[in-house]
Design a protein around this nucleic acid. Structure first.
Lengths: 355, 355
DNA sequence: CTGAAAGCGCTAACAC
DNA sequence: GTGTTAGCGCTTTCAG
């Protein structure tokens, strides 16, 4: 019951033409008499012919596959979400995606990237490369790269997210609710794996925007309230990256009443520390996540600064395909925006005397 | 700066031998004089030669790629976790993985599977196919399939999970804590997409084991306490699949004191309903998740019946490769086990009079 | 408008 | 031990 492994020659024979003609009608190249076109089409139907992408790839040196590297896609739901949209869009555009989760391990990533090269992927999308060298290896082989959200290597195309709007909305939202004591738990900037200016790292930018927006309201945040969580420890993802830092905040003499986190995962683990301390969100403390990756299934459902996940995935594919078409063209950058999604983890500041 | 696109012939020329000899030393086939072996090796080094898997694939009709279909890998962390281990193991074994998230959409899945076929994947792993026909299409093309955890089509290899141990441990754990009023919120059995006996569906099995283990303690669970959640609504994932069902349980005249859920995702959304009702876990009610996919980052950290996620992923690859090697051999099945991971969502039953 | 022929990079059977 | 040859399925000149 093996379905046809019908080859192009099979189709050609059946239609009484040559393989070249079959190719012509399949890809609308050159002129074909209407009559033979019909004959070929029906032969294709009859045989259930499907092009062999491997043979095609060898001949055209286009594999119609994209490589996708995601990082830490187990606890952090952001990356699998982006991956999903990349896969959907690629499918729609006639591509297939080779996916690899680097799990925060540079060596793993290097091995995977090498493998992508062996399979002659047409482009590689990184939704957070772990090591800039791995991006460069691809680029050096003349293959387009697209870095999504976080770009740690200064090569190829990038799809960035402008954090301004979301952070402004978040700060204004909290300020409007009466909060005056703020804290921020962001991600650590991994200087060893970042090319160029560390201040351009997205984690650093988010911190800065947080401060700037509060400064607008005349609020200065003490250094003790600005913390950075390590997501990876010795190439292993940290399971509850926000837990200990949140405990530290809770132990502060002037406990903050509002905390913005650098990811929903960070907020989720912060929530554990808050609950453990016998405090409640949002009654005692308001918190805001980032990403909007798992905000809606936490308790309470998190107010979160949403990244445009679907757009990121789709744009990454679009840019990859554009780079494949005319690789000599400039390496473009495109930016998307964030917005605040308000749910149940933010409320009016608790009464001062109640402590 | 393009790194070498050195071909095998380039290496051969440089080493002063023929391509055939290069192949021989690369794959340890046949005898090669030590002297020439060294010459070839150094030529490989010098050129940075990497085999072209596309050409190799065409010649050998082995693409060294695996297809992987996962379902709903956005909110439910179970699938991306399995995917991660599949990718790791495949990488280790010299394979690369084409991944597709069907997102509960049969048509999407069909399109993706078709694409896998076009790319001549050597085998396809389904960590929950959406539609059995899509598994059959692969099988009909003579390509091995492996269904992981849930198997909805009666073809090919399967990696199942034996739910016995975990469910027994879970029930005993709760019973030991004094609980006598139980409830279960499992997943709905989608009869339209299931070949064969519906009672064999993993959701049905879990329900049955739940009842049987309680019967062992002389406890009979009323029908009103056995609920089934729909994960997909009109081919779209439901965002809070356990929320409404949990509300229903809370409205029961004899409210259960312990609930076992069919997944961590279900438990997470159940938690939202509990909290909304002003009740607390585990003081007022104990809950247990299933999968152990996101249990540890919820508040409270969930006691959960853990699926052996890493093992599932690795076994799936192992079985796929075995099937590729000798495809005429019988289609095997292998089973793994579950175990209870105790965290903070379970505690002694609350005092009866306290309601 | 259509067919013949070459060749992408590799492997496997067969010579020597 | 090693080279020669043919061909996987497709695309693309080049003839006609």
């Amino acid at each position: 019951m093996k379905a046809s492994k019908a080859t192009m020659t099979d189709v050609a024979r059946r239609a009484g033409v040559s393989a070249a003609t079959v190719a012509r009608v399949l890809y609308n190249n050159g002129y074909v008499k209407e009559e033979t076109r019909i004959a070929v089409k029906s032969a294709v139907e009859a045989t259930g012919y499907r092009p062999n992408m491997v043979a095609r790839g060898l001949r055209t040196s286009r594999s119609y596959t994209l490589g996708l590297v995601v990082s830490e896609s187990r606890l952090n739901a952001f990356h699998p979400a982006v991956a999903h949209f990349v896969q959907m869009e690629a499918l729609r555009q006639g591509y297939t995606v080779l996916t690899l989760n680097n799990n925060a391990d540079s060596d793993m990533e290097a091995a995977g990237v090498r493998r992508f090269l062996d399979h002659h992927v047409d482009a590689v999308i990184f939704c957070s490369a772990r090591d800039p060298r791995n991006v460069r290896i691809i680029a050096q082989n003349g293959i387009p790269t697209v870095q999504v959200e976080r770009h740690i290597a200064h090569v190829g195309a990038v799809v960035t997210v402008d954090a301004h709007d979301g952070m402004r909305e978040a700060v204004d939202h909290l300020y409007g609710l009466g909060h005056r004591r703020f804290a921020f738990i962001g991600g650590d900037v991994d200087s060893s794996n970042m090319e160029g200016n560390l201040d351009d790292a997205i984690e650093a930018v988010r911190e800065r925007l947080f401060r700037e927006n509060l400064a607008r309201h005349g609020i200065d945040v003490p250094a003790a309230n600005m913390l950075r969580a390590v997501y990876y420890d010795d190439s292993k993802p940290v399971r509850q990256p926000g837990y200990h830092l949140m405990r530290r905040l809770l132990a502060l003499p002037e406990r903050p009443t509002a905390v913005i986190f650098g990811s929903d995962l960070l907020a989720a683990s912060g929530l554990q520390a808050i609950s453990e301390a016998g405090l409640s969100v949002p009654n005692d403390i308001s918190i805001i996540g980032y990403d909007d990756s798992m905000a809606e299934i936490l308790t309470p459902a998190l107010t979160s600064i949403a990244q445009p996940i679907g757009e990121l995935g789709r744009l990454a594919v679009t840019m990859a395909l554009a780079a494949i078409e005319n690789s000599e063209n400039a390496e473009p950058a495109i930016s998307t925006v964030t917005r605040l999604v308000i749910r149940e983890s933010t409320a009016t500041v608790p009464n001062e005397g109640s402590e």
